[in-house]
Lab assay of single mutants.
Amino acid sequence: SDFTIRIGDRTLHLKNVSEEILKILEELLRRGIDFEELRKIVEELIK
């Protein structure tokens, strides 16, 4: 499924993301992860 994360004025667009990855990202966001850290993790996950 497609997913968009907005943190402040920044946006991260994800396409064809599995439910498992979404759950991980949601947990990281709940813990207050930094946007740049989140972006790096996402890039690793979707390689």
Score class of each variant (00 low, 15 high):
I21G: 12
K15R: 06
E36F: 07
D9A: 03
F3G: 03
E37D: 08
L25E: 00
I7V: 11
S1C: 04
G32H: 11
K23R: 14
L28W: 08
V42D: 01
H13C: 12
I21R: 04
L38T: 05
H13I: 12
F35D: 04
L22I: 15
F35C: 01
I7A: 02
L38F: 13
L12T: 01
K15Y: 10
I24L: 10
I41F: 09
T4D: 10
T4K: 04
I5W: 00
V17A: 05
E43D: 14
I41P: 01
I33L: 13
E43G: 10
E44S: 12
E37Y: 08
G8V: 01
R39Q: 11
L25P: 00
I5L: 02
S18T: 14
R31F: 04
R6D: 07
R31P: 07
G8P: 00
F35E: 04
E37L: 11
R6A: 12
E27L: 08
K47F: 10
T11I: 13
L25I: 14
R30I: 14
K40M: 14
L14F: 06
S1Y: 15
I7P: 00
E20P: 15
E36W: 05
L45Y: 10
G8E: 03
I33P: 11
E27K: 05
E43K: 08
F35P: 06
E20K: 11
I46K: 09
L29V: 09
T11Q: 09
F3E: 02
V17R: 00
R39E: 12
E19H: 09
L25V: 15
K40Q: 11
R30S: 15
F35M: 08
E27A: 10
D9R: 01
G8W: 00
I46E: 10
F35V: 05
R30H: 15
R39Y: 11
R30Y: 07
S1K: 13
K15Q: 07
T11M: 09
K23V: 13
D2E: 02
R10M: 15
T4N: 09
L28K: 09
F35S: 05
K15S: 11
V42G: 05
S18C: 03
F35W: 09
V42F: 06
F3V: 15
K47E: 07
E36R: 04
T11C: 03
N16Q: 05
D34F: 05
L28F: 10
E20W: 07
L45G: 05
L38S: 01
L38C: 02
I33T: 11
E27M: 06
N16A: 06
I33H: 09
T4G: 01
I5R: 00
R30E: 12
E26H: 15
H13Y: 07
L45A: 06
R31I: 12
I24E: 08
K47W: 07
K15N: 09
L25W: 01
E27Q: 06
V17K: 01
S1P: 10
I33S: 09
D9K: 04
I21K: 07
E27G: 07
L25H: 00
I24C: 05
L28Q: 10
L14M: 04
L28G: 03
R39L: 13
L28V: 12
D2N: 01
L29H: 03
E26F: 09
T11P: 01
E26L: 11
D2C: 03
E19Y: 09
L45R: 05
E43N: 11
E26M: 07
I33M: 11
D34A: 12
R6C: 12
E43P: 07
R6E: 11
L14V: 09
E44F: 11
R31S: 08
L38W: 03
I5A: 03
L14G: 02
K47H: 11
K23C: 06
F3R: 06
R10T: 09
K15L: 03
L14K: 01
S18D: 08
K47R: 07
D2Q: 00
K40D: 12
D9F: 00
V17M: 07
L22C: 03
I21V: 13
L22K: 14
E19T: 15
R30G: 08
E36V: 08
L25T: 07
L25Y: 01
E19V: 10
S1D: 10
F35G: 05
K47D: 10
L12K: 00
R6S: 12
E27I: 07
S1Q: 15
E36L: 04
T11E: 15
R30C: 04
T4M: 07
L25M: 04
E19C: 05
L38M: 09
R30N: 13
E43V: 11
V17G: 02
E36Y: 06
E36Q: 10
F3Q: 05
L28Y: 09
R39A: 14
E19D: 12
I24Y: 13
R31K: 15
I46A: 13
E37C: 05
L14E: 01
E43R: 07
I7S: 02
I5E: 00
L14Y: 03
I46G: 14
I21M: 15
K23N: 12
I46M: 15
G32L: 07
L12V: 11
R30V: 12
R30W: 07
K40E: 08
R31C: 05
R31T: 13
I7R: 00
F35R: 03
S1M: 15
L25R: 00
H13W: 02
R30L: 14
E20Q: 11
S18H: 04
L45N: 06
N16W: 04
K23I: 14
I7H: 02
H13V: 13
I24W: 08
I5K: 01
I33K: 05
E43M: 10
E43S: 12
I46N: 13
N16Y: 06
D2K: 00
K47V: 13
R39I: 15
E19K: 09
L28D: 03
L25S: 02
V42H: 03
L28M: 13
I21A: 13
I41L: 11
V17S: 02
V42P: 00
L38P: 01
T4F: 02
T11F: 04
K47I: 13
D9Y: 00
R39K: 10
R30M: 12
E44G: 12
E26Q: 13
I24R: 13
G8R: 02
L28H: 13
E44Q: 15
E43I: 09
R10L: 13
G32Y: 09
E20F: 08
T4I: 15
R6G: 03
E37N: 08
T4H: 14
L22N: 03
E43Q: 10
K15V: 08
I5M: 02
K40W: 09
E43L: 10
V42C: 03
I5T: 01
E19W: 07
G8M: 02
F3Y: 05
L12M: 09
H13K: 05
I7C: 07
L45M: 12
F3P: 02
E37F: 05
H13A: 04
D9C: 04
